[in-house]
């Protein structure tokens, strides 16, 4: 599920800007660490809006300050830029939070109840509900709102949408902000499950197979790919051991690239000379 939501953030940015964001996992990590700080200092009612405000700020700064100058540059520049951003966030986190695991406060009521013969904790239910909520909201946003339509147009062709009066740069900003906000919201739940520490950012890289399997441009694909990779990884760990399990997402990734490179829901691109 977490894979799915990280993948969702990556897909959101890729759809409109054609930039693959390697730093999505690092955004998640920053989200966990920042929200940890806020929740420990303030009441939860103040902390959550603060976290979302931070996400807005970071998303906007990243797009405006760092990605904007690279429009029109080759693919590798943008890729490397997100990697550089990733390591910048890593460095900041290392300095201020160190590399230890910090316990994350249990900020929502936790109880478990039986559900179809298995015990389900309310944390899992909350996570799934919020994820589903984000997904439905996004679907509505893309189908119904003007901005959502502008985003889909931008995804098709930057030049055409620019000439139709869509502010492409604003669409880009919004995409990055949305991706950051999703990462930060998920961080609130993710932190409770696994605790706060720097190496959370690793999950960002592990979410990449989910993006590719789902298809680079498909939001539904990101969620399904995330679920698929997550479940397969757990199954592989259980039946084949931790060794195979830890690299299983990437084995799936290799197979996916060879067999169906554009994913389950993606569209191949047609290149002309």
């Amino acid at each position: 599920m977490i894979y799915g939501l990280i993948a969702l953030g990556i897909v959101l940015i890729f759809k409109a800007t054609k930039v693959f964001n390697f730093a999505q996992g690092h955004l998640l990590m920053m989200g966990v660490l920042l929200s940890l700080m806020f929740i420990n200092r303030f009441h939860i009612g103040i902390a959550i809006p603060l976290v979302i405000a931070c996400a807005f700020g970071i998303g906007w700064v990243l797009e405006r300050g760092i990605m904007r100058p690279l429009i029109g540059q080759p693919l590798i520049s943008a890729l490397l830029m997100t990697l550089a951003v990733a390591y910048l966030l890593d460095g900041v986190a290392t300095i201020f939070w160190g590399t230890k695991i910090v316990p994350y406060p249990q900020w929502y009521p936790e109880q478990s109840f039986p559900f179809m013969a298995i015990e389900v904790s309310s944390g899992v239910v909350w996570t799934i509900l919020v994820a589903a909520g984000i997904f439905v909201a996004l679907a509505f946003f893309y189908r119904r709102s003007l901005m959502g339509k502008a985003m889909r147009a931008t995804a098709d062709s930057h030049q055409v949408s620019q000439s139709l009066g869509i502010k492409v740069t604003r669409v880009f900003s919004l995409c990055w902000i949305m991706a950051a906000v999703i990462a930060f919201i998920m961080a609130l739940f993710f932190g409770v499950h696994v605790g706060a520490f720097r190496y959370l950012s690793e999950w960002g890289f592990r979410a990449i197979p989910a993006v590719l399997i789902g298809g680079m441009e498909s939001i539904l694909g990101a969620l399904i790919g995330g679920l698929l990779v997550g479940v397969l990884e757990v199954i592989a760990t259980a039946y084949l051991g931790a060794f195979i399990g830890s690299m299983f997402p990437f084995i799936i990734l290799l197979i996916a690239i060879i067999v169906k490179p554009h994913g389950l829901f993606g569209q191949p691109e047609i290149v002309r000379v």
Partner: peptide
Amino acid sequence: GLGLIVFAVVVIVFL
């Protein structure tokens, strides 16, 4: 941490 930050900033500046 500083090593990471300096490296990242230099790469960003060059890009």
